[in-house]
Design a protein around this nucleic acid. Structure first.
Lengths: 314, 314
DNA sequence: ATCGGTCCATAAGAAAAGTGTATGGCCGTA
DNA sequence: TACGGCCATACACTTTTCTTATGGACCGAT
């Protein structure tokens, strides 16, 4: 590196600065939280290092030399920027600055995340938060490559380069408009849905195959009226009476409005979501903080509509 | 002072900076002239001080975290300004920057100083040099109050707040045009100057009273044709045959040209000049350097015209 | 003039920080 | 599997830096 020129410590420069500012070694010492001899030595050593006197010793008092004043201006600047480094380090440590990039499924981002985000941002107002919605595979790649800091994905995960922490566990419900004949039942199963127009989503996704399997086991052919891809649209269709939507309960709640209601679907198909980060390295601290908020949020959410309506049908 | 925030050393910051720049602890260590464990420790300690990780430990390699990169930019700046402080300190030590303000009598500044200045400035090209000519009293005050760093004054000095170092010792000569009748003599005294038109200077100054006293002792009334105030003008008058000038020999040399010559004046009235600084504090280093050049200059000047023409008259 | 207070410098021992050598773990590659 | 590069830790040693104690110089006041 640059090895020319005198090499002095930060403390020495600070001592010099403080002496000029306060006008005496003693005052500088108290200002720095040191004893007077310590500062005296610091100064003496600093002067010896740079090779010229910073102060006249005038009857025991220190008076800056022209050289000293010349150096002081520059030292003032340098200490200022050092102070900025310290301040920045503190801010980073306190999450006063920073950036967090996450991915989450659209329904997750629309439904449950806003509350978590609200809490998170109130804790870290200065943090820049980004939440994208991508396809599942893209999300996994983004997380694994650390193009984003983390994200919410549905379990199970098939990739070893991802680390997951389960945060939410939801059942499956049927969403139907108020007044629908089946609304009288406290729960629904494939048999009870025989011939009933359905709105299903996620053709090709794992959760969808579970539904299909449940119907198959019951010997019922599902009357799929519409295939869609977001819970929001499925609920919108259900609202208009186009069909009964069979969806993730937790995510459906946000879209119920006042014209829809839920009834548990049986068998109990579970949807488990996890906060996922790259397995390569430790997740960013902000990601952990966000995860903490997410856990907190889910911890105080009603577990399941099944719990609320536990009991026998009608 | 500001005691909040993490306090880390310059070495730690430099180590962090070097690691990011070189990409590895090992490379940073060689760049800093340290061993790898030393830098490793420095980094570990730095991270502990600021409270968050600067690098991912990815399979044994260090990869900067976003936080680390954030801090790096600021650290880069700070180290840059620290480098500027070091450079300035070095320049000050090497007299690559600085200012020297002196005072000197006009004839001094015109006659002998240019050579000294030449030498001084060739040694310290970047130094800003100021030389003023003021009245003797003003000069003393300027020096004593350190409004200027030093100056050349004629001895003796009557003030205890000034420190003087004799640098030049000159005799008194008569300056007369070539072909003047008295040029035949190898020296002149009041008696030989009886009735000869004279050009004298410094009415009221100490040296003038010495000349008057010499004439008085010889019982000769000086035939003063012109009173003037600078040696330059006295010589100019002498050139035109207006009168014989009795002046400081050393200072007169610069004004002789090719139409004047000097003859020692007897009695031998000495003019002693000293480099004067404030007695309150040590003189600035640049003043001492200038003094050194002045001494060097006078050391290789012919001592006195008396020495050259030592011998008997005619 | 002497005394008390202030200020700076130095000495000496103690505490802290920094450094080098040695060593071990981890990973990628031959 | 062995080797080489990289990082972290352990331990002993050196250097720096701190505090306490002390002395000298100066100023103002009694």
């Amino acid at each position: 590196m640059n090895n020319d020129g005198p090499d002095f410590g930060l403390r020495a420069l600070r001592a010099f600065h403080a002496i000029v500012k306060t006008g005496s070694v003693t005052a500088a010492a108290t200002a720095m939280g040191l004893t007077q001899p310590a500062v005296s030595r610091l100064l003496a050593q600093f002067e010896q290092t740079i090779g010229f006197d910073l102060f006249y010793r005038d009857k025991g008092r220190l008076v800056p030399t022209p050289d000293g004043l010349l150096l002081f201006d520059e030292a003032d600047l340098a200490l200022g920027t050092m102070e900025r480094v310290r301040a920045l380090a503190r801010d980073i440590a306190d999450f006063q600055v920073g950036q967090l990039r996450l991915v989450a499924p659209p329904s997750f981002a629309e439904g449950v995340l806003p509350d978590v985000i609200d809490r998170f941002l109130s804790r870290f107002p200065k943090v820049h938060l980004t939440i994208d919605s991508r396809s599942v595979e893209t999300s996994k790649t983004l997380i694994a490559t650390r193009a984003v800091d983390g994200g919410f994905l549905k379990l199970p995960l098939d990739r070893p380069d991802l680390t997951s922490v389960p945060v939410a566990n939801s059942g499956t419900v049927c969403v139907l408009p108020i007044g629908h004949p089946l609304a009288a039942r406290s729960w629904l199963d494939p048999l009870s849905l025989k011939g009933v127009p359905l709105v299903l989503l996620g053709l090709g996704r794992l959760s969808r195959s579970h539904i299909d399997a449940a119907f198959a086991r019951a010997g019922v052919r599902p009357e799929v009226r519409v295939e869609t891809h977001t819970i929001g649209s499925a609920c919108a269709l259900a609202t208009r009476g186009i069909g009964v939507a069979i969806v993730n309960e937790m995510l459906a709640r946000s879209y119920l409005g006042n014209r829809l209601l839920m009834r548990p679907f049986r068998p109990d198909l579970r949807h488990e979501y996890a906060f996922v980060t790259s397995a390569m390295v430790a997740p960013p601290r902000l990601a952990l903080e966000f995860l903490s908020d997410a856990k907190h949020y889910f911890a105080q959410q009603p577990k399941d509509v099944l719990d609320e309506t536990a009991g026998s049908p009608v």
